[in-house]
Design a binder for these strands. Structure first.
Lengths: 171, 171
DNA sequence: CAAATTGTTCAAATTTTCTTGAACTCTGCG
DNA sequence: CGCAGAGTTCAAGAAAATTTGAACAATTTG
């Protein structure tokens, strides 16, 4: 903003650098997302939105977090997909504004649906493949393997039934 | 094995390269451990042990999986720590032999204890830090932040109570 | 419609994480 | 003792994941 105008167009100038508090909150979320195997930038984005009383635009995230537009765009895509972030309509602004979803149950449900379920599903196929291999295999040593594949099947069934239950335990 | 002897010293020669079945089983575990954020080699080791009717030594893992002794050692260390692998005494062999633990409940409990709990614990400290920052902060804008930090506290409490419960749902 | 604004994509660069291998420790054995 | 076998450690190299940035869509506006 080279030209100085008497009245800023933005409602709030939004301090360019993060406050101690914001940094500390973001830090919590960065650890959390890394724990569940998501990139740091996603924790930063969610953390800043979580700390913000007003919904923020992609530009604001780029500016305040010093991350690239590409990262912000990709990060928001993931956060939207798991329902961790909600687009908020703001009158007279073409840009998308985002707010953090703070209902733990929703966050966990979204994560399970988008990140965990797909793996369980591909697990079904792999399990089928294993059973097919077992059928062809040398009958001699198949006894032990049969028991192990059966065990895998038990795990799979159990996981499929427990994961959805997890959501119910929250909130 | 350049020299051919009439009788092998090992009980079973253990085919140097993996069978189709073993590869498929290992593949399942490699995906699984990557999902929970552990290195591939750990999935390979556990997968081979899971497929093996007999406990295996570190050397056997190195040979059959074509991984380095260092990887095998470190991988076994993690697997031991979460209780995914059990040392088995074998008479007349100084080497450690390992068998896969196949009780899902134990595996999950071990993972929670070793990998998840520590993060929840450090979370307590960070939360305390946040509350301390809040106390110092500008009273004006502290209203919103106070509510968010309170929300974080709720999440934390909830997680601490739910994680242990999870174990109970299995088996 | 042309220009400007917003957001997306993706190959290349960077950063992070994992793996390797050689040096080291620790035991047991002769 | 000193050697040999088994396992660990850790710095350096290799591999994998993330981030960047610039080109590209898509939309709105004048």
């Amino acid at each position: 903003m080279p030209t100085a105008h008497p009245s800023s167009p933005e409602p709030l100038p939004a301090p360019p650098q993060l406050s101690t508090m914001e940094t500390a909150v973001i830090d919590v979320f960065v650890s959390a997302v890394k724990l569940i195997g998501l990139p740091k930038s996603i924790g930063e984005i969610y953390g800043l939105l979580f700390s913000s009383p007003l919904p923020l635009t992609l530009d604001a995230l780029v500016l305040r977090l010093s991350i690239s537009k590409g990262s912000a765009s990709q990060g928001l895509k993931v956060l939207r997909s798991v329902g961790a972030v909600r687009p908020v309509y703001v009158a007279g602004d073409r840009r998308d504004h985002y707010a953090a979803e703070t209902e733990l149950k929703k966050l966990v449900a979204g994560f399970i649906r988008e990140e965990l379920q797909p793996h369980l599903d591909s697990g079904s196929e792999r399990l089928a493949h294993l059973r097919q291999l077992l059928a062809c295999s040398h009958p001699d040593d198949s006894g032990f393997l049969a028991s192990r594949i059966s065990k895998l099947g038990q795990w799979h069934t159990r996981s499929k039934s427990v994961l959805p239950l997890l959501t119910g335990l929250l909130d």
